[in-house]
Design a protein around this nucleic acid. Structure first.
Lengths: 206, 206
DNA sequence: TACATTTTGTACCGATAGGTATAAAATTAT
DNA sequence: ATAATTTTATACCTATCGGTACAAAATGTA
């Protein structure tokens, strides 16, 4: 009479659900949420619409799961950069890492979160809000890290950690957009280097 | 037998074509190209679809005309900033001007060109290409101005005008996005100030 | 007044959007 | 073998997309 058993009865799923989700992420990454149609998704995932809906709910929920996958990648930009001890290395790591990751040819160019947020009319307001929430969560991590650095005397007293985090975010958005538009790794590295140089000179004690 | 006369016969147009175009620009500015539907346009412009098509061609041509209107505004950011003699003032003017203009409440937030470029799937590739061309034209104006400044000894020899122009463009994109997401004038001014400070310290002789 | 011309509103077009009803196919449990 | 369950493929749904045919309305010209 133990009815709490996992469901393994019925016809087995004919595709790898994790791999399908990864393909979906790639499409959203490339085209954004509104720019991606169900047909594009099913084609990329190699499944038909009813299978997609049975496995992922609907387009919106599929998007959220794809973004979860994106943010939990081991090579997450912010996670890698935060491994550095000195805030100067964190800042350099974030900017140079963004240049590298946004132009990595093994996946679509730019940042998936930045690419997805645009051109969402009122219909997909929840998408916009969710992406905004994620972005502000990431920004808060930057704020916390910079506040820590300031408390440890690494940052000038004149430096507002909030403003510095906003500036970093703005640079990510710019780098992401330029990568999406086809900028090369070399170009973005130069831009990131110049940006880092200015930020470090003004805000970091030495 | 002079047949080359202007057309002033027939039922007169019942709306102001310039004002209608301005309304169309506002909608594109707010929602981007793909995010804007014909119904939204006609409602905002106060006309019906056949009138729109008779006056402007189609959605794509209407968009191009709206962007023309946007770029030929007298208070164009770049035109104002370029009035300064010293490149330091130009850079400050561009960044602070962007902060001010992108948060100006008399029109949608952010830069219309930046807002429009996103989420264009293959169907509207020509839109994407056109917007890209406009953006790179603006970037080239920055490159030229910075090259001039370097020739006049205002910029460090180590400064690559191309890279500096890319960095400025990236900052515009970031500021535009943050404005679109609801950032205040005060926030953006602080970000722009910090960015300008870093750029000037590193690249401008004094 | 009759006509040519242009704009207007209505009503429609085919294509595509996201999403689903349905029944056949493929599996485990009895 | 039969039943229960789940996934599959086909075919369809309604809503909306950009765009247009058509006739009535409004003007200038003859």
């Amino acid at each position: 009479m133990t009815t709490t058993k996992a469901a393994c009865v019925g016809r087995p799923r004919g595709f790898d659900i994790d791999l399908a989700l990864e393909q979906a992420l790639n499409v959203f990454w490339r085209n954004g949420y509104e720019g991606t149609s169900l047909n594009e998704l099913t084609e990329a995932m190699g499944i038909k619409k009813p299978s997609l809906y049975a496995a992922f709910g609907n387009k919106e929920q599929l998007f959220f799961k794809a973004i979860d996958l994106y943010e939990n990648r081991p090579d997450s930009l912010i996670n890698i950069a935060f491994q550095h001890e000195r805030v100067a290395d964190v800042i350099r790591g974030l900017l140079l890492g963004a240049a590298a990751q946004f132009t990595d040819c093994s996946h679509p160019q730019g940042c998936a979160l930045m690419n997805s947020t645009f051109s969402c009319n009122e219909a997909s307001e929840s998408i916009k809000q969710t992406v905004l929430k994620r972005k502000s969560k990431h920004k808060q991590r930057l704020v916390d890290r910079f506040e820590l650095a300031q408390n440890q005397g690494e940052l000038q007293e004149s430096c507002d950690p909030e403003v510095l985090a906003s500036l970093m975010t703005a640079l990510f958005q710019g780098l992401s957009m330029q990568a999406s538009e086809g900028a090369s790794l070399d170009e973005l590295q130069k831009v990131a280097t110049m940006a880092a140089e200015g930020i470090l000179t003004v805000n970091v004690k030495r």
